[in-house]
Nucleic acid binder design. Sequence first.
DNA 1: GTGTTACGGTAACAGCTGTTACGGATAGGG
DNA 2: CCCTATCCGTAACAGCTGTTACCGTAACAC
Lengths: 202, 202
Amino acid sequence: MSRTADRSAQGETLSRAVWDVLSGQGLERLTVRAVAAAAGCTTGLVMHRFPNRQALLLHARQLLHEVTRARVEALEERAATPRSVLRAILHQGMALDEQTRQEAIVWMGFLAAAVADEQLIEEHRRNNRAWRERVERLTAAAAPEWTSERVAAVALALIAMAEGVAAYAAADPEAFPPDAQERMLDTALAAYGLADPRAGAD
Amino acid sequence: MSRTADRSAQGETLSRAVWDVLSGQGLERLTVRAVAAAAGCTTGLVMHRFPNRQALLLHARQLLHEVTRARVEALEERAATPRSVLRAILHQGMALDEQTRQEAIVWMGFLAAAVADEQLIEEHRRNNRAWRERVERLTAAAAPEWTSERVAAVALALIAMAEGVAAYAAADPEAFPPDAQERMLDTALAAYGLADPRAGAD
DNA sequence: GTGTTACGGTAACAGCTGTTACGGATAGGG
DNA sequence: CCCTATCCGTAACAGCTGTTACCGTAACAC
């Protein structure tokens, strides 16, 4: 690792190394040395950048959230209707290719690590609540006539479904291929009356 | 641990100790010594019962599957209609009380451990495929007029939703209380046209 | 060009890990 | 009552863990 790289860039490099180890070797092998090796440096740099392993994981977790949030907001700005936004952001949360599959594994690894880490579980809760509120807001915009109870129930059904199928597909991509996930999503949106009438019109 | 206990009972005791450590302390602290302490014995007994740590985890994973399967089949025999069976077995897969919440955490811990364990991931895939086939079979029985494509899409939506909400609720029970999960389930079943007309009739 | 400072690699530390070897205790057969 | 086989707790082992201390070195100020 170059000596002149600024601190935040190093933090990002190390966090991405955390993701790589987490998705490739799992939580049990997520050691400081493995992260350093994945980042192409030694444990010395890692421990100079972060006070301890816990802070390293927390930073990697927060960066994952930040990256995801930026991607979702970009989708939200680009899409035309609330319904197409809703579909797009649920779509990006599933495990449809190698990259999103690894993200799902990383996501799950952090969740498993959070069982024994108060700061990680707090971060996880904050992110998940924000995520649910975002989907509730979009659901309400996509179906303005609904009661808030129905909005809440359907939004929860949608985020749970996306999260769940990502876990299934991450662990068994052959059994849960991308087209099956997409059919599932479109079937669900249609069943709730949230299908985008513009879909496939172009 | 009593000396005269037979081997399979000891295996079950140790496997339950694995679950306890996994749900209480997380995968990172799931050591042979922690399992022995939770079972009230020493590492000597653990290593005499299982050749190594991997075999211990695999047995605990298989027993979890077996227990779940027995519970689901009991529900299936007891319920009156395919639709009530479907609701009942999805219901038992969510995190509605402390016990099911801990089961969800254990489930997730095994999934995270499976990233680095070929046998665990194989076991996981086998179980998940059997679980999906069961729900597909019940869905087809509950809606005989559907095409197999719709059955597959809806069944996947249902199991993914249950798995996902269990993960959300396990990590944040206050934000995802039992009644929210149940409203979500009933809203989803109604949306797919799978609501049980007998529900609430008694 | 020289002094200073911060960066990061090296090596060490104590503690914990899975696993193995050993030895004492115990139950059952003669 | 003794002999033996089985069970399992104890203790040790090498290897790996997070963390710390140390020191060479490169970059910058003057």
